[in-house]
Design a protein around this nucleic acid. Sequence first.
DNA 1: TACCTTTGTGAGTGACTACTCACTTTGTAT
DNA 2: ATACAAAGTGAGTAGTCACTCACAAAGGTA
Lengths: 183, 183
Amino acid sequence: MTNKDIILQTALRLFAEQGYDRTPTSQIAREASVSEGLIFRHYINKEGLLKAIIAQGMAQIAETMASYAEQSGSPRWALIQHIERSLTSIRENEVFWRLVTNIRFQSGISAIAGKEIEEVNQFVVRHLAENFRKISTEAPEQQALLLFAQIDGICLHWLRDTEHYPLDKMKQLLIKQYNHVYF
Amino acid sequence: MTNKDIILQTALRLFAEQGYDRTPTSQIAREASVSEGLIFRHYINKEGLLKAIIAQGMAQIAETMASYAEQSGSPRWALIQHIERSLTSIRENEVFWRLVTNIRFQSGISAIAGKEIEEVNQFVVRHLAENFRKISTEAPEQQALLLFAQIDGICLHWLRDTEHYPLDKMKQLLIKQYNHVYF
DNA sequence: TACCTTTGTGAGTGACTACTCACTTTGTAT
DNA sequence: ATACAAAGTGAGTAGTCACTCACAAAGGTA
């Protein structure tokens, strides 16, 4: 692991824990055991560091999503699978999602790194809409938006109270709901 | 309107637009047309100002919620009503909810004013759970958590893209879903 | 060895920000 | 009119933070 990577990992953790604005570069340097100047040599400025973190994390997410997309099955099964996978991935990438959440809903910052996040979101919604269309649901795009919002809502509530929130139960309930609904 | 109120309103708007951390007290003073010192005379410090904003807004929300709670009807109707009202109130109190959202998902700040928000949330969930219990749903508490997350997810997505997000359609779809589901 | 590039350092700087304080103005009760 | 409290001012302060820069060390190449 190079110092450049150590800086990235440390910043990811601290941004997720404390928030971007409340994490001084001096602290990142200290906890990464490098000089403060090195951060700026590698990432130009603090925004550049944030962008690099988002870019790396999103690339990883996109990669795993692509590998899943190769699998084939009935559209209804694909939808259920998507719920399943989303609510599992949040656990596996907890720290990164915590950072993303911080950024998504913070007015001033979302401009810095919001676009990459939006793109992945839109990709997900299109993928969902396609499956709803195959089931011949009326208004598939809106059904996709709804399901996406529902999954997102669960993720966000889990991030807010990770220890107590019954994520698995929520997953089961949501799946049950979509198994019962006649589109 | 006293200067104290003007400061509160101005800070609410700026916090919602730019975020708490990215809004200097000097800007609040300038846009409220008062001296910077006056902010601290009335609210002690910046955190005090934020707490006052949250307290006022939440009191207002609690008030309207209480007035609605007086109405009676079937539990299923009450659930539908809650969806209806939540997704209307978000439009009416857009600025305040935008601020609340900023705070809820920001790691460092939620400690300052997060408790009041949590309390109202828990109140809502308990109210929902009660209605689910009356319908004799299995696991009413978790059904309540799910519905709450679903509504919240829609609200959050609308706040992220207020101009384009089809809030009314989402409302209709969610209600339709809950009318079709057999608990 | 000599030379160049990349990586790394840490003291220093200018800009900004929350907050203070001595002082003035306004309102109000007697 | 006088006295007193509350409201209001704005220059000043101590501290923090992102970022710079002159310099040193390390690594590769000939």
